[in-house]
Write a protein that binds this DNA or RNA. Structure first.
Length: 577
RNA sequence: ACCCUCGUAGCUCAGUUGGAUAGAGCAGCGGACUUCUAAUCCGCAGGUCGCAGGUUCGAAUCCUGCCGAGGGUGCCA
């Protein structure tokens, strides 16, 4: 009987502990870095330990002999059917079939699918999406939103108390320009029809004018000062801009199934900025240079950071320091994770350094991703070749609709639309989540909306096929497959599938530690392929009684893992496609 | 000039942080549908891991140099 403690451990954690004890039993002390990893190739066993080689060298022993001694140190521990020494000193581990089945059942029935609840009692703040007021969200914003949300869900699945905070750009010089634009160029009909597009239009018009007209520029500055001093009329306009923008953002968030616990823009921290500056002065961290206030960061190998401009205005770094201080005081987070594009790397290094100097205790992490580009050119607001997020999602749903209609012409219209929505959005999300974020990615419609191969729809389809199989089983037997059905291994493909299922808790743990949703995406795709191969080649419903129940149950557990894994990526799993 | 990333099959990308014969998808070729949902499965072909050195039992992965791409570098965010 396993203890609760062991049930909360991943397979690699369990095996690592087992092997560590085994090494310790033949050595004088307990080596620390004994780890067990999944094998790439089944012929090397299910898991492997590579520690003997490095350790032997340090101890002046022969690697193969050390490995052999470990293998022969005693009877096989729980869960392990056999171990063998291979190559220069690898220890290949073969799991015990009964243990595999027991573990697979446990993962299938566990409310957290075996994911260790390592985050219990810890708070993590995740700062993502963060669009600017008065600008529509385009495909440049999608990555922060989708990747950030996946990290959010990953940490929740590990038991962390997650605070998702949308740090919107609702304060700054653009509002003077916007207020003048609103007064002079506003078209009320357009504002009703497409509010955010109209705000963007008046902003761009006003901005163009300001570039060529100094009087206009001065007027914009004057409006900004009035706003910052609390002028009621400008204040109310500003509120209007924010409400309109938030309303538009919320539509996108609803479609993407993204929800924030906090929406605190830069303005929320505005009153704290003067205090931040005076603290920096008191601690002698800030000094004047060329009329501005700077923090020197040579000791960190970083360039100077300006915290207050010559005209008295504050910079982004100042706001971010104020934000961290506020978050620490209110929430005491163990960690704060920021998800932004790669251009802000230096900024985050600088402001993390300043935050630490001012006593910040939270672990600060910057998760960055490459900008998205269009095949023809770098996309930019100025050139007007942006793809609006809304248009992308519409196109995705349209293509998915055509696909669903072709596959399933009998599906009633409302359901077909609903499925098309889930599949279209899932395709867009998966395209973004399935690759390493830190690479430059070129946007193409076909890739973002891929419906076959390594794609969201492939995974959803795999899920739907299982759901259909389970329905069919229930219909025939008059009752769904029981959670208590005992599993058995009668075909190598069943074993391969179980081995994949066992990996899930490790994968989620690893993905969260690396802030990489692609690790989960990659795994789910492998799981689906393993399942598809099993399903295509091994009869389930048609199998003999007993074997049939076991296989159907295995299908059900696979479905559970697929559903949970996709849910962590923020991708829905319709029961029919 | 300096700093940060990236460079892997024709194309798009993985590669468990130093492990065994570098893997998928798309495209190409050959097979499997009166189905347990073929958006699938089985097989074939495709590689000087940008180039050159180095570190060690072992390198796509780590160090150095070079080439190429992208981003950044005191009053934008």
């Amino acid at each position: 009987m396993e203890s609760n403690n062991q049930k909360n451990m991943t397979v690699t954690a369990l095996l690592s502990a087992t092997l560590q004890a085994r090494f310790a039993s033949i050595l004088d002390d307990t080596p620390q870095d004994i780890t067990v990893v999944e094998t790439q190739n089944p012929k090397f066993g299910d898991y492997q330990c590579n520690a003997a080689m490095g350790l032997a060298k340090r101890l002046g022993k022969i690697p193969r002999e050390l490995a052999k001694a470990v293998v022969e140190a005693g009877p096989m521990p729980t869960g392990i059917a056999g171990m063998e020494v291979a190559g220069p000193g690898f220890i290949n581990i073969f799991l015990d079939d009964n243990w595999i089945l027991q573990k697979t059942s446990h993962i299938g029935n566990d409310p957290t699918s075996g994911i260790p609840q390592q985050g219990e009692g810890k708070t993590v703040i995740i700062d993502y999406s963060s669009p600017n007021v008065a600008k529509p969200m385009h495909i440049g914003h999608i990555r922060s939103t989708i990747i950030g949300n996946a990290i959010d869900r990953m940490y929740r699945s590990l038991g962390y108390h997650v605070i998702a905070d949308n740090h919107i750009g609702d304060w700054g010089t653009q509002f003077g320009i916007l207020i003048m634009g609103y007064r002079k160029f506003l078209d009320k009909d357009r504002l009703k029809q497409a509010p955010i597009e109209e705000l963007e239009r008046i902003y761009v018009t006003s901005y163009e004018r300001a570039r060529n007209d100094d009087d206009w520029m001065d007027a914009c500055r004057a409006e900004l000062v009035k706003l910052q001093k609390g002028d009621p009329e400008n204040r109310s306009l500003w509120q209007t801009f924010i409400e309109i923008s938030l309303g538009e953002f919320e539509k996108i968030y609803q479609r993407l199934d993204v929800h924030f616990d906090l929406i605190r823009g830069e303005s929320f921290y505005h009153n704290d900025l003067a205090d931040v500056i005076s603290t920096l002065r008191e601690q002698a961290l800030a000094e004047e240079s060329e009329g501005a206030l700077i923090v020197r960061l040579e000791d960190e190998g970083l360039p100077v950071c300006i915290v207050q401009k010559r005209d008295g205005g504050y910079n982004y770094a100042t706001t971010d320091v104020a934000t961290v201080q506020s978050r620490e005081a209110e929430f005491h987070p163990e960690r704060i994770i920021y998800v932004t594009d790669e251009r802000q790397q230096l900024h985050f290094k600088q402001f993390f350094a300043i935050a630490r100097k001012t006593g910040c205790q939270s672990r600060l992490e910057h998760v960055w991703f490459g900008l998205m580009r269009l095949p023809e050119a770098t996309f930019s607001t100025r050139q007007g070749n942006v793809i609006k997020l809304e248009a992308l999602l519409d196109e995705a749903e349209r293509r998915a609709y055509d696909m669903v209609s072709e596959l399933n012409p009998d599906m009633p219209e409302p359901e077909r639309k609903e499925v098309a929505r889930a599949v279209g959005i899932g395709a867009v999300k998966y395209a973004d989540l399935s690759q390493n974020p830190q690479t430059l990615i070129t946007f193409t419609w076909d890739k973002a909306l891929a419906l076959d191969g390594n794609s969201g729809p492939y995974l959803q389809y795999a899920y739907a096929r299982i759901a259909s199989l389970l329905d069919k089983y229930s219909a025939r037997e008059g009752t769904p497959i029981s959670d208590q059905t005992s599993l058995q291994l009668t075909d190598p493909r069943e074993r391969a599938l179980c081995i994949q299922i066992l990996r899930f808790p490790d994968v989620v743990t690893r993905a969260a530690a690396a802030y990489r949703p692609s690790v989960i995406a990659d795994y789910l795709y492998t799981l689906s392929q393993t399942y598809s191969s099993f399903y295509q080649n091994v009869p389930c419903l048609k199998a003999d009684p007993g074997v049939r129940e076991s296989r159907v149950r295995l299908c059900a557990i696979t479905a559970t893992i697929l559903k949970r894994g996709l849910n962590i990526l923020g991708i829905e799993t319709p029961a029919r496609i």
